[in-house]
């Protein structure tokens, strides 16, 4: 990859993406990941530079479509077993701390 084709990704972009993923990064990490992500994006740009005129876009690498199952009930998990693995449970439900945001 030549330096002039390096895609621009800023430290602010990285901080924003980290926030969306609820990751807390130190300034040093933001610096390091900005460089690493730039390299990844640079690779994508190499691919984008290929001449793909006449090539159909694909949604998936597998040559498969319509993988379906019949609408038939299968056994569920045992509730007590599942809830026993949760950090907290109450009245048959998962208990979580107070939610500050709103439903998306």
């Amino acid at each position: 990859m030549s330096p002039e084709s390096r895609p621009s990704i800023s430290r602010d972009d990285v901080a924003h993406v980290a926030h969306l993923a609820r990751l807390t990064l130190t300034p040093e990490e933001i610096e390091r990941f900005t460089g690493q992500l730039a390299a990844v994006l640079g690779h994508a740009e190499d691919v984008a530079a290929l001449d793909l005129a006449g090539v159909e876009p694909t949604a998936h690498p597998l040559p498969l479509m319509n993988v379906l199952r019949e609408d038939e009930v299968r056994p569920c998990l045992d509730r007590d077993e599942v809830l026993a693995q949760a950090p907290a449970a109450e009245e048959g439900r998962f208990r979580v701390p107070r939610i500050l945001g709103e439903a998306p």
């Binding site: 009930v73 299968r74 569920c76 998990l77 509730r79 439900r93």
Partner: peptide
């Protein structure tokens, strides 16, 4: 109004006891 969920075989039924219609896929 299917019998099961969209991506797993858990029953699609309203008004059941909480967390009795769950499996590894939908959790």
């Amino acid at each position: 109004r299917t019998a099961t969920k969209l991506f797993c075989g858990c029953p699609n039924r309203f008004g059941q006891e909480p967390n009795t219609q769950i499996c590894p896929v939908c959790t």
